[in-house]
Design a protein around this nucleic acid. Structure first.
Lengths: 115, 115
DNA sequence: CAGTTAGCTAACCGATTGGTTAGGAAGTGA
DNA sequence: TCACTTCCTAACCAATCGGTTAGCTAACTG
């Protein structure tokens, strides 16, 4: 069963390497080599991550001489935001007050951050 | 390397079965059997999904006789919303106009939809 | 007590994931 | 032409994922 678009998007951004790549692309287009630089992994590994991101529609690729620059695409993530915000809405209406209360209670704890 | 909390959350909701379970839990607590009913898979399979959701902190479990009811938990998904909204913000400010332009350009296609 | 119900773990399986190395294609430029 | 750079695919590998069945515990019920 091929996964639906939302699942594709979410599993694409579930990987920290791929999120870091997306963050980097917020500063503008970048080549594969530039994207790979911060990581301790091979170029082909980065290529695979880029393929996943492209498959989810989160990036698109251009062509400039030998370079195949990547840039961000907006739409699919909007859908993900939509889904998650369904839940936000639910929690905002029914759980926010309890949530705030809990945080306040934890804040009264002197300095032990055990959670 | 154990994954960070955000990755845990996102990969938990990347699965359509688990999203359906969360949706169901928006209507209130439910037992494992109740949660399993709509699906064509075995109870142990559902148990595994519940374990993933619990591991991500998205649900918690109670105890009532033989039942071990599940309920939603709010916090981890908030973090996910936060991360994704970082991107929304970026796109809203810098890409929306380009986005609209591109859609208009694609709309040179015969009769196409507006939004 | 015996029998039923709810839920779990263990062991197993095939498919997918996330990485590697090797090697090749395509473009640049001496 | 030849060398170099950039990026890709192919093949492989270990680990994880998503499901199964079998069998167990714990709690209710007759």
């Amino acid at each position: 069963m091929q996964p639906d678009r939302l699942s594709l998007t979410l599993s694409a951004i579930a990987d920290p390497t791929r999120r870091a790549i997306l963050m980097r692309l917020m500063d503008g287009e970048a080549s594969v080599k530039e994207l790979a630089a911060p990581f301790e992994m091979s170029i082909p590994a980065i290529c695979k991550h880029l393929k996943v991101l492209e498959g989810a529609g989160l990036i698109s690729r251009g062509r400039n001489a030998q370079l195949r620059p990547c840039r961000l695409e907006a739409k699919p993530l909007r859908e993900a935001v939509g889904w998650i915000e369904e839940f936000s809405k639910f929690w905002d209406t029914s759980l926010n007050r309890l949530d705030g209360l809990l945080e306040r209670l934890q804040a009264t704890d002197p300095d032990s951050k055990k959670n």
